[in-house]
Deep mutational scan, measured.
Amino acid sequence: VTLFVASYDYEARTEDDLSFHKGEKFQILNSSEGDWWEARSLTTGETGYIPSNYVAPV
């Protein structure tokens, strides 16, 4: 399981994006799509795309 933590807050801009807060942890589901990764929030359980430059490895 690949875990990352949010370095910043992010507000979703499309329905496919995932909003999150600094400190929130994610399981990365797919990182092969470039700068936007499909992730599941371990806080909310929601799945969506997050900007990879807003998160760091745990």
Score class of each variant (00 low, 15 high):
G45H: 06
F4N: 01
R40P: 00
E38R: 12
N53T: 11
V58T: 07
A6M: 01
F20G: 01
G48R: 02
L3H: 09
S41Y: 02
W36M: 12
T14R: 15
R13F: 08
A6G: 03
V1K: 11
A56M: 14
V5Q: 09
L3R: 05
Q27K: 07
A12F: 02
V1N: 12
T2D: 10
D16M: 14
D16I: 13
Q27T: 09
F26N: 00
G48N: 01
W37M: 06
F20S: 00
I28A: 02
W36E: 04
V55L: 12
Q27R: 08
Y49C: 13
Y49D: 02
T47I: 14
F26T: 00
V5S: 05
W37D: 01
V5F: 06
G34H: 11
W37K: 01
T47M: 09
N53A: 14
G23K: 02
G23M: 03
D17H: 15
S32N: 11
L29T: 06
Q27C: 13
F4Q: 03
L3Q: 07
L18E: 00
E24N: 05
W37G: 01
E46A: 12
G48Y: 04
E38P: 05
T44I: 01
V55H: 03
E46M: 14
R13D: 08
K22Q: 08
E24T: 08
H21V: 14
T14K: 13
Y10S: 01
V5G: 03
H21D: 06
S19P: 05
Y54F: 11
N53Q: 12
D17V: 15
S32W: 09
G23C: 06
Y49A: 05
E33A: 13
F26P: 00
I28M: 04
S7T: 15
S41A: 06
V1A: 12
T2K: 11
E15Q: 12
T47R: 10
E15M: 11
K22S: 07
T44C: 03
T43N: 08
L18D: 00
D35G: 11
L29W: 06
Y10H: 05
E33Q: 14
V1F: 14
V5C: 08
E24Y: 05
E33S: 13
L3V: 13
T14P: 02
L42K: 03
Y10C: 05
L3E: 08
I28F: 03
D35C: 13
T2C: 15
Y54M: 12
S52V: 08
K22L: 06
V55Y: 03
N30S: 10
K22T: 07
A56N: 10
E11R: 09
A39V: 13
S52E: 03
E33M: 14
S32K: 10
E24R: 00
I50N: 01
Y10F: 09
S31R: 13
P57Y: 06
V55P: 02
V5E: 09
S32A: 11
A12T: 04
T43Y: 09
V55R: 02
F20N: 00
A12G: 11
G34A: 14
A39M: 05
S31F: 15
G45R: 04
E11L: 11
D17T: 15
W36F: 10
A12H: 05
F4R: 03
L29P: 04
S19W: 03
Y10G: 00
W36S: 06
I28Q: 01
I28Y: 02
K22I: 09
F20L: 05
S7K: 15
G23L: 03
R13Q: 14
A12V: 00
A56D: 08
E24H: 07
S32H: 10
Y49Q: 08
T2A: 10
F26I: 04
K25V: 15
H21I: 12
E24S: 04
K22P: 03
E24K: 02
W37T: 02
E24I: 03
R40M: 12
R40H: 05
E38V: 15
K25P: 06
S32G: 10
T43G: 06
E11P: 04
K25I: 15
E11D: 09
L29F: 07
I28G: 00
E33I: 11
T43A: 10
T44W: 03
K22H: 05
G34D: 12
Y10P: 01
L42P: 01
P51V: 02
H21S: 13
L18A: 01
E15H: 11
F20E: 00
S52D: 02
G48S: 02
S32C: 12
N30E: 07
Y54W: 07
N30D: 11
V1C: 15
W36N: 05
G34Q: 12
T14L: 09
N53F: 10
G34E: 12
E15D: 12
F4K: 02
F4W: 15
S52N: 06
T43F: 09
A6E: 01
T47A: 07
E33T: 12
D9P: 07
A56I: 14
L42C: 14
G48K: 02
L42W: 06
P51E: 02
L3S: 05
F26R: 00
L42S: 04
K22W: 05
